[in-house]
Each structure stands twice: as structure tokens, then as C-alpha cells.
Design a protein around this nucleic acid. Structure first.
Lengths: 347, 347
DNA sequence: CATGCATGCTCAATCGATGAAGCAAGATTG
DNA sequence: CAATCTTGCTTCATCGATTGAGCATGCATG
């Protein structure tokens, strides 16, 4: 039987072709003179299994097309066992690293028949937790926490709801993590900058480490690699050479303006966000300083900037492949996978 | 009364603290010894209106917290009149223009108490339509079609479902549109590049127009502005100077490699995507050519590249403000709003 | 002491889609 | 020709949250 409500909507006589409500399977069933469940089976593809005739299937499909029917996902997902929704929280969209992660994540999720939902948390711990709760409310089956300031907190929010979570970019201890080989990449990058400074300016000198937060896992690992490269050359790094003022171009720029940087210095720049501050400082200076820098991160334009010796590009494709491996086959425990970075010389 | 199903789930004896299902209001009601509707009212904030005592409200809230309860948005949205979901489809995430649009859109939507859902369509018309249908299925109340290849098609998909749509970046004729002042911005940029070529290289010469598609509205408008600036100087532009090979760095690079570019040429680059191809060509050339270029679009690193004379930055904040004006107060007809661009000289 | 009213809840229908179970009519088999 | 099978549907409970209507209880008022 038709529901009473179905009578009170749909196309009303005199109103013509502009229905004010979205058509439902009840409306289509009424028009086709059949039952809502037949319409449902036809429109969700299970009609053969449910022994609906091809002729009815075709007729209903045509009517659905004509009426501009679109399934109500809220109703469908409420009823269905699985939502196939996979969430991602990400600190920012507007740099190449996170932008590319978001874009490839969406494409890879769709390839696998999942519905990606991404939300941007501005690197704010409170927003991250709120976003995680929102994903749970959307009935996401799995949440990828990218660059989260507090991955374990997010895992803790997900766990009671039975939502799996996976960390990307920043590792946690509670659930699987996929991160770059920050130590190895940083050591390699620092070696290359030191080498270049030596070749171009005559003598090896300790580099500046610029950007990031001292408490942040990735920054710590990269600093460790940075120091290892210096140690190999017997160089000590004075603490004042580490300018870690977070992920903000403006703060980085201000920090550089506040210290006295010698000509022919070398910069190890931790992320393109910090690099924005560095280049603003370089080109805003009264006299263009002669430096060499390298960056742990990649950007297609920064790549060609003068004084850049090259960029350590994180392997986004490889990382996301590992993430989806974990999505498909949940591992035991909370393994941490490190993917190697790829060095791209500046032209 | 409790639903029968509520008995069959929840925490089972012996399983301990790892419930396999998310708790529902029925579970909480059972634990609190109250009714699901009281729980509902308490958790959605309408409890005062519904005359629930503060003591019960507090107790239920605490239980909800303990159980890690998260509302099922599918169920809530199914029941509620309005979804407050606002969708956006966007061609890409991984360039600064679209990345910043996505990020600011999310922030502005949340400020207004709306739930943003963004999806990325890779500038593929079929994917755009599919994404629009998906937004309708999510019960989005409004859809922002950003940089859509066929905005009117999307408006046509939304209309029968009563979903409003608004075009951003690329205009359509069916619904309101907010775009940059492409003509004015391009004329201004072309004037500046021509001026700089004249100053640096001695004589004005027609510029190259690089990137975009000839059929695309924005490219046509920018070409019109480009030609107007040339006309002001009495310069004719040979058709061979227009290299419009779409929005692809690789195709742009190949196109440049295929023609003979004179030293001291000036480039009008239509989008940072094309600019990626341009700089790859510049730095890949056997001998570094001496050119001047300007770009209709902004990027914080491209800004500092040598030979760049400046960037025409689109006013994303102003555009989104106009978009949300249209969301809040739907205008009559299909107005088109053009927001001025801001020229940023290269350092 | 009857009446009215405020308080603090519960009941049950509902949103739209799904799918197990069931039913009627025709085809096939013994 | 009865029994069984197949075909092609329909019926109805269900997912979880919401909300108008209703029902006790207690207190104040005339």
C-alpha cells in the first residue's frame, strides 16, 4: 500500500512540472502502478535476484528518469548494514602536499567503491575531535586521520563506536600509521644541502633548521636526520640555528627577520608552509641574501626558485596505497609503516 | 517501550568494554531507565522546550558520554525537514586557487551552521554530473558548482530535485553565478606585461597567450581582455601566439617545445596550471630563455620566480561572500556577479 | 473539594529505502 | 488432474531519531 504521505505531495494538478519535493520510491510506485519495494529493487539493481520482470524494470527506470529521481542516501544508509563511507580529516587543503593527498584519496576511494568524505581541521586539536565525531555520525566505516595533532585522541574517539582509524603523515600508537621516512629523508636532504654549501661557498657550516614544532613527531624525526648528517661531518649545530615556530609562513618570516643570518648560510626548510615564510623573507630583505636552501616537501614552483638546491618529495601515492591496504586488510596491532621520500633536484 | 532489536545488541556479558555496535538512543534509554524520546530531546538540545528535568538531562548526558554515543546523522536527517548540507563540486584540490576555495568554503559554511561536503571532479563532465547526483542523494540543500565544464547541465540535474545551485568561477545561464572580472583583470595584466616588455626589452611586441581552452568562458573573456590591451597599443596578435591546450601542465610544456619562441618574448599565462608547464619548459630548455611573464592566477612561490612580472590574484574571499549571500537570500533569475581581481607584483 | 494548570515525562507515527517472507497465477510434472 | 515449481510481484517490519499528542502527578485556586 501507498503511504498516506505520498498522497499529499508529488506533482499537484495545476502546479505543473515543478514539484516542490524530491520524488521518492512511493511516488514512482504510484505513477507506475506498482509497489515501492519493486521500485526499490529495480533502482538499486537487485531486481533480477528478486524476479522482477524486465518490462516492469524498464518502465520504472524510465519513470524514475523522467521524474529526476535520486535515491535518498540517508534512508538507504540507515537501512543498509554497511555505509561504505570512508572519512578523512586533513589539516589544510591549500598546499600541494595536502591538496594532492585529498585528491588522490578521493580517486582511490571511489575506485574501490567507497564514498570519500573529507574535512579540513586547520590543525586545531578541538576541531579534529569534532570532525572525527562528525564522521562517526555520518556512519563512516573508517577514518583516515591525516596530519592530526593528536592521533591517539582521534583513535580514542573512534574506538567506542567501532569505527576503525588509520593515521597518515603523523603516527600514533593506538592504530596503524603510514608516514614518510622522515629521518632518512631529512638526513639525505641535509647531506645534500651541506654538500652544496661546501661546493658553492667553500666550507661546510651548520645549516639552519626552519619550521615545524619541536613537540611534533615529524619535526623531531627530521631534526634527528638533520643532526645525523651534521654529525657525519663532525659539525655541531648551535641550538640557535633551529627556528621551529610552527606551521605558519608569517611566523617563520617574522622569526627570520628577528635573527641575524650570515651570508652564505644554508637552510633546511621543514615543509613548504615554512618555505613560504622563507621566500617572503628572502625577497623582502633590503638586500637579497645569497643562501642555499632545501625543503622537506615538494612544490612545482618552489622547485625552480633560485638558491633552492632541491626538494624532498613525499611519496603520496605509495603512502595512500599502504593506507588502503590497511583499510582492506586490517592489520593486527598498530604497525607503523615508513615510506621513502624521493629527492627532486631543483631543475 | 524498547524495541526488540535493542535487546540483541549493546554490550554483551563477557565481551567486556568493546561493543560491536554503536549505541543508539534506545540503548541509552534502557541504561538510564527512561524513554528514547526523552534521550533524543536531551541530546539534541530541545529538552527544555520539552519540559525534561535538568537532573534527567544531566544523567542521560553523562551516560551518553560514557557510552561514546554519537547521533546517527542518517536517521536524524531522514526525519528532519532540513539537512543543512551544502555541497561543492570542484575540479581539483591540488592547486592554490581551488585549494583555497575549498578551505574557505568549508570554514564559511561551518560558521553559518551548515555541513559542507566537497567532491573533486577532475574537470570531467561525466563525473561532475555524477557528483551532483550524489550531492542530491545526500539531501544537500544547495550545491556550489565550481569551475564546472557544463554549469547549466548541473543546474538541470539539481532543478527537478528542488536543490538550488550556484555557479562559482565559471558562469552559467540557468542559476546565479559568481565569477572573477576576467576581462578587466586580463586587460590589466596584459597591459602590465606589455609595459614591462617594452621597458626591459626596448619595444612593445605582441604577447603569447598560454593555457586554457578556447571554448571555455573564462579563457574567452581573458583572451578578450588580452586582445583589448594589445589593441590599445595598436598591436595585432597573430593567431599562432595563442597556445590554448587546456588545463594541463604537460600539454602546455609540449606545446611550447613545439614552437619557436623568440628571445625577449612576453607570456600571458592563463592559470597556474599552465604556468607549471611554462616554468618546466623554461628550465628544461637547453639555454635559459630571457622572457617576461605574468599569470592570471596566484601562487605564493610562482610569485617569486625570475622573469615573473606579477600575478593577477582572484579575490576568493569576496567571491565566496557573494556565493553565501546567494545561499542566504536566493536572488530572482540568474544574475552574474563579477568580482575584481587584485594584481600582485612579483616582489 | 472540584477544577485548572504546570511539570515531567511516554507513546506512537513518521521520514524513505530495504529485503525476508508470503501469495497468487501460470507452467510443468507425475 | 492434482501436486509441485516457477514467475512476478506485494506486504510488512525495520533501520535510529524526531515530534505532536497524550497522560499522570502534584500543586494552587476559587
Amino acid at each position: 500500500m501507498l503511504r498516506p504521505s505520498s498522497f499529499s505531495r508529488g506533482t499537484m494538478a495545476g502546479i505543473g512540472d515543478s514539484p516542490t519535493r524530491r520524488p521518492t520510491i512511493y511516488d514512482l510506485a504510484q505513477i507506475a502502478g506498482t509497489s515501492p519495494s519493486a521500485v526499490s529493487a529495480i533502482l538499486n539493481g537487485t531486481w533480477k535476484k528478486r524476479r522482477i520482470s524486465a518490462s516492469l524494470a524498464e518502465r520504472v527506470s524510465r519513470i524514475a528518469e523522467e521524474q529526476g529521481y535520486a535515491v535518498n542516501l540517508q534512508a538507504r544508509l540507515l537501512r543498509r548494514e554497511r555505509s561504505r563511507i570512508i572519512g578523512m580529516i586533513i589539516p589544510k587543503y591549500d598546499n600541494r602536499y595536502f591538496g594532492a593527498i585529498a585528491e588522490q584519496f578521493e580517486a582511490m576511494a571511489r575506485e574501490r567503491g567507497l564514498f570519500p568524505v573529507i574535512t579540513c581541521t586547520q590543525r586545531d586539536p578541538a576541531l579534529e575531535v569534532e570532525a572525527a565525531r562528525e564522521m562517526i555520525s555520518y556512519q563512516a566505516e573508517c577514518l583516515i586521520a591525516t596530519g592530526a595533532t593528536d592521533p591517539d585522541r582521534i583513535a580514542g574517539v573512534c574506538a567506542p563506536s567501532g569505527v576503525r582509524s588509520i593515521n597518515l603523515d603523523l603516527p600514533g600508537t593506538a592504530v596503524p600509521s603510514v608516514v614518510s621516512d622522515n629521518f632518512g629523508g631529512a638526513r639525505d636532504l641535509a647531506r645534500r644541502i651541506l654538500d652544496r654549501v661546501t661546493r658553492d661557498f667553500g666550507a661546510p657550516a651548520p645549516l639552519y633548521f626552519i619550521g615545524g614544532r619541536a613537540q611534533d613527531h615529524n619535526t623531531r624525526e627530521r631534526l634527528r636526520g638533520f643532526l645525523a648528517a651534521h654529525a657525519e661531518l663532525g659539525l655541531a649545530v648551535p641550538p640557535a640555528r633551529c627556528l621551529m615556530h610552527g606551521y605558519s609562513a608569517t611566523k617563520t618570516e617574522a622569526a627570520l627577520a628577528g635573527v641575524d643570518i650570515a651570508e652564505h648560510s644554508g637552510f633546511f626548510v621543514n615543509s613548504t608552509i615554512a618555505l613560504e615564510g622563507v621566500v617572503r623573507w628572502i625577497y623582502g630583505a633590503p638586500r637579497l641574501p645569497d643562501l642555499r636552501f632545501g625543503c622537506f616537501d615538494w612544490d612545482p614552483f618552489a622547485r625552480f626558485l633560485p638558491q633552492n638546491i632541491g626538494m624532498m618529495r613525499q611519496d603520496i601515492g605509495a603512502m595512500l596505497t599502504r593506507v588502503f591496504d590497511f583499510v582492506d586488510r586490517p592489520p593486527a596491532g598498530a604497525p607503523r609503516i615508513e615510506t621513502p621520500c624521493i629527492f627532486e633536484p631543483a631543475n
